[in-house]
Design a protein around this nucleic acid. Structure first.
Length: 573
RNA sequence: CGGGGCGUAGCGCAGCCUGGUAGCGCACCUCCUUGGGGUGGAGGUGGUCGGAGGUUCAAAUCCUCUCGCCCCGACCA
């Protein structure tokens, strides 16, 4: 393609509302434009990258034996009422009415539609297992769309649904999808990790998320420095200390701590380490009760873990300031477990402390030298906190490290949730009717594009991995309008590269060299070839990879061969 | 949905407090210049100041309402 036929709308200045680097660069490079909150147009340059990701996904899904379908974006309410999600899904489901006032929704996901299709079409175990996927636009009316296409309301997703007569078959497809996802993200040139994930409301069996590692990621993931263990911090178990609790040595004392509330203030004021203090949080319990949750001062409460406790009200909610006063007779900054007449649940690490500091349930006062079982009843113990860097890995091997990640994929053993609600059955080999078992497998295709940029950029712009770059190579002629030699040599190379199957862009705009360089650096095309009078005398062109600091001369005659091999090596890498 | 902020030319912003001619940089158009890292110069196009109502001789500016967007907390690919 030639730039004269391509909409190149690069921006020098960064639009004010773009917060993360991928959003800024996608706008600046002319890949996307916003139409409404969380709703974007993909311009030609952006669409090329999106299509490349899509093609890799399609390729690998087909390779794994999945079949492509395309389901409607608009779905009738009846199906959602049947599965029970018309009520449960909440305001995130975009509901619409047709001219006859019939209810529809714009699909945020397609379990209902696929299950409806399969229950009509699949009769026999002989037709299973089967895995169907589509690459399609979804709409989720997110509370807060942000970060450009990273968390848009309308986005492109690959979703797949598999059907089985038994668990073993589901396990097998699940493993195949796990491998397939690894292949997909590797081919996209991404640094990623599969991690164990929360199975949420569906519960049970198994779920993995695939995270692209990046500073701007919205999730924290924990992984072992020695084993393969990796899990979302939401889920990662904080295991109990292996040593016995130290003996009670100090006397409990009451100390005035005027205007000291936070753990940081208290530990500085009393000159004790935060890990020798306890933090007490009051939350809503079931049946209008209040429950005290206790974690070590240097730890953070994990509300997802807390919410799973039977004593805790769902959804998880902190107690109001008034409720705190009512049960503890003080404000939040002075809470402690001693003397509380409500259930106390302590994190494993908090329960392991001896001679600790905590609030005295009296404003401006704290207690030191406190011990469980002596000064206050032994608490109920549970895993309540977020793991922190250096914690032992739950699988017993090594220590945990924590990094931020962008969730680009999620695979899930659904089980019979939808198939039983919607009565999707088939006959097994004994002629008995069985409810099919399902798996589902998602990839945020548009999010993959953004996450690739988060991971691959510099101060000049995007640095695309070869496999998903909008163009693999770009030809920049220097002063082509004045030099017929340059124009001619460039044209010849352009034809040769096309013939060699390389996705090449020829910049035939009448722009100054600096403008071309700056635009192409911003857009991030990996392989750059500059054709100029200088090199031509020696039969050379200049080659530079977007990652290289310096360009180097290559004989024109060997360029096609050189590029072909450079591109295939980087594909492997 | 709660809390904070912003709507002035395609983009980035000033002007608003203290009402009186709508401005700057980039982009865009024309001409000259330059021609290997966003050349330099001259001239030019483009805005009912988000919308509605009000106060006033006079509103981008003050008041009320409304719409949109962005940022901080609960969702997810």
């Amino acid at each position: 393609m030639r730039t004269s036929q391509l909409l190149i709308c690069t921006l020098k200045e960064t639009p004010a509302d773009a917060e993360v680097i991928s959003h800024q660069l996608m706008l600046r490079a002319g890949m996307i434009r916003k139409l409404a909150a969380g709703v974007y147009t993909w311009l030609p340059m952006g669409l090329r990258a999106l299509r490349k990701v899509e093609q890799i996904v399609r390729d690998e899904m087909n390779r794994a034996g999945a079949q492509e379908v395309l389901m409607p974006a608009v779905q009738p309410a009846e199906l959602w009422q049947e599965s029970g999600r018309w009520e449960k899904y909440g305001p995130e489901l975009l509901r619409i009415k047709d001219r006859h006032q019939r209810d529809f929704c714009f699909g945020p996901t397609h379990e209902e539609v696929i299950t409806d299709l399969i229950r009509r079409e699949i009769r026999s175990y002989k037709q299973l297992p089967a895995n169907f996927y589509q690459i399609q636009t979804k709409f989720r009316d997110e509370i807060r769309p942000r970060f450009g296409v990273m968390r848009a309301r309308e986005f492109l997703m690959k979703d797949a649904y598999s059907f089985h007569t038994d668990e073993a078959s589901l396990d097998q497809t699940y493993r195949t999808m796990h491998e397939t996802y690894c292949r997909i993200f590797s081919r996209c040139g991404l640094n990623f990790r599969p991690v164990q994930a929360d199975t949420g409301s569906i519960g049970g069996e198994g779920s993995h998320e695939f995270h692209v590692l990046a500073q701007s990621g919205e999730d924290a993931i924990a992984f072992s420095d020695t084993s393969g263990y990796a899990a979302n911090v939401e889920l990662a178990e904080a295991i109990a200390p292996s040593t016995p609790r130290p003996a009670a040595a100090d006397q409990m004392k009451s100390i005035a701590t005027p205007n000291q509330h936070s753990i940081a203030e208290i530990s500085a004021f009393l000159n004790v380490a935060p890990e020798q203090t306890l933090k007490t949080l009051l939350v809503k319990g079931v049946d209008n009760t209040v429950v005290a949750l206790v974690v070590r001062g240097d730890h953070e409460l994990n509300t997802i873990k807390a919410e799973k406790l039977e004593q805790i009200e769902k959804p998880f909610t902190f107690a109001s300031a008034d409720a705190i006063r009512a049960v503890a007779n003080c404000d939040a900054g002075s809470l402690g477990p001693v003397g509380l007449k409500i259930p106390v649940i302590a994190d494993r690490a908090a329960a392991h402390l001896a001679n600790f500091v905590c609030g005295a349930n009296q404003n401006g006062m704290h207690l030191t030298g406190v011990n469980w079982g002596r000064d206050v009843a032994e608490p109920v113990v549970a895993d309540l906190r977020n793991v922190v860097e250096g914690d032992p890995s739950p699988d017993g091997n090594g220590k945990l490290q924590i990094q931020r990640g962008i969730e680009v994929g999620h695979i899930f053993k659904l089980g019979k949730k939808y198939s039983s609600a919607m009565n999707a059955t088939c006959l097994d080999d004994g002629g008995r009717s069985v409810v099919m078992t399902m798996g589902c497998y998602g990839i945020g295709v548009s999010r993959v594009v953004a996450s690739a940029i988060e991971q691959n950029h510099d101060d000049k712009g995007i640095v695309w991995p070869d496999a998903i770059a909008p163009f693999t190579a770009v030809l920049l002629p220097m002063n082509a309008h004045k030099s017929p030699r340059v124009a001619e040599a460039t044209e010849k190379l352009y034809q040769d590269l096309i013939a060699a199957g390389i996705d090449v862009l020829l910049d035939d705009r009448k722009e100054r060299a600096g403008v071309m360089f700056a635009d192409m650096d911003l857009i991030g095309i990996p392989h750059r070839i500059v054709v100029g009078e200088r090199g031509l005398d020696a039969g050379n062109v200049e080659y530079k990879h977007r990652r290289d600091a310096q360009s180097r001369d290559l004989p024109i005659s060997s360029l096609v061969e050189y590029l072909t091999s450079a591109i295939s090596t980087s594909r492997k890498a």
